[in-house]
Structure formats: structure tokens, C-alpha cells
């Protein structure tokens, strides 16, 4: 690697309380970008896989839901393949974007995604990751976006073999990564920024 030309990443700053203007402008009545906010639709009629609704809140250290934050997700398709810039050659589902964005509701704090359950993802070494969804959380007061992963609480046998979950020896905190199945197609995943239920955030 050519060390002479190494640059340094520019630093993060909080998204602040007005992130909606730039990220979900149609949610605050700006009626721009064709009326559809980027990341608000992951699916089309032809998307492969089992439809699920995924919802939750982001709680602060006072156990209050954050109502001015935003959550982004990134996930594999039903066959465990990611949309990439080279998607056409790797067989991933072209009817699935894999990326979603939802602001926290201004009153309830709930974010929500209509998506599909991802398949297990094969790693380069041939082992498998359990179905999971990557999360990125930004808000006023959050200086650097927070990364975590959501797993499906009902996938016991796949979760047991997941390499990342296996590495986390603190089993008590592992539960903070598990979405709760409410009904067959409905999962809840709450994120806690602080406190006894503090979610595991990853340095990725």
C-alpha cells in the first residue's frame, strides 16, 4: 500500500434535529425529489422472499423514545445476496433494494420498514451468517452514527452458529441484538442508547 498518499477520513458531526430536511424531506412537507423519500420503499411486487414488517424505537438514557432521529438498514435479499454496484453478475434480486431509511415518528418515536426476511449470508471462508439486518442510527446528540445488527430472535439454531454471535461471549448483551417476533410477519426491535439494556454497538 502506498503510504505516501494516505489521506484521513473527515470527521463526523451530529445530524442534528433537522435531518428530515435533507434525508426525508417529504415527511415534513417539502414535497421534493418527486414526492418520494429515498429509502422509503425496499420492495416491489416481484421481490422474492417472505414479507415482514419491522418496527421499533430508539430509547435514550432516560428511557424516552427519541423522536428526532433516523434509522437506516442494509440487508441481504431472500437468498442471502447483497445488492451491489455489480449486482447484475452475482444473481441478487434486482427487485429488492436492500437499503431502507426511516425517521423516528415525531410523536411515537417508532421507525418502520416493510421488507423481506433476509437469507443466511455465506462468508468468504464458506461459513454462514444467520439472517441479520445492519442498522445505522443517527440523531441530534449522536456525534458519530451508531452501527448495530439485528438478528431474528426465533432463529435459534442459525443464531447459535453465527460467527459474530459466537464471538460475543457476553450472552446477557446478545439479547439486545434480537428482534422479537410478535406475529408471523411482524418483528419488533428496540434500540437502547444507554442504560441497563444498552444495545451492543459495533466498531465496523
Amino acid at each position: 500500500m502506498d503510504k505516501l498518499h494516505r489521506l484521513k477520513e473527515i470527521p463526523s458531526q451530529t445530524a442534528g434535529p433537522f435531518l428530515h430536511i435533507g434525508c426525508v424531506p417529504n415527511q415534513i412537507g417539502l414535497n421534493t425529489f418527486g414526492g418520494i423519500d429515498l429509502g422509503s420503499v425496499l420492495l416491489s411486487k416481484n421481490t422474492e422472499g417472505k414479507r415482514i414488517t419491522l418496527t421499533g424505537k430508539v430509547f435514550d438514557g432516560k428511557n424516552m423514545p427519541i423522536r428526532d432521529g433516523m434509522v437506516e438498514i442494509w440487508q441481504a435479499d431472500a437468498n442471502g445476496l447483497y445488492q451491489t454496484s455489480d449486482t447484475k453478475s452475482d444473481g441478487s434480486d434486482l427487485n429488492f433494494s436492500g437499503w431502507g431509511r426511516s425517521h423516528c415518528d415525531f410523536e411515537s418515536g417508532s421507525w418502520i420498514f416493510e421488507t423481506i426476511k433476509p437469507g443466511p449470508v455465506m462468508m468468504n471462508n464458506g461459513s454462514w451468517m444467520a439472517p441479520h439486518i445492519s442498522f445505522w442510527i443517527v440523531a441530534r446528540g449522536v456525534n458519530l452514527g451508531l452501527n448495530t445488527r439485528m438478528y431474528f430472535g426465533d432463529e435459534h439454531s442459525l443464531n447459535e452458529k453465527d460467527p459474530l454471535l459466537q464471538e460475543l461471549k457476553d450472552t446477557k448483551r446478545i439479547r439486545t441484538l434480537m428482534a422479537r417476533k410478535i406475529t408471523e410477519n411482524f418483528y419488533e426491535f428496540n434500540i437502547y442508547l444507554q442504560g441497563e439494556n444498552e444495545t451492543i454497538f459495533f466498531e465496523i
Partner: peptide, 9 residues
């Protein structure tokens, strides 16, 4: 705003 929105771990 960072006081109650910063992970402790």
C-alpha cells in the same frame, strides 16, 4: 444533547 444519547459501553 450527547449526555443521554451516548452509549456508555
Amino acid at each position: 444533547s450527547s449526555l443521554f444519547r451516548s452509549p456508555k459501553m
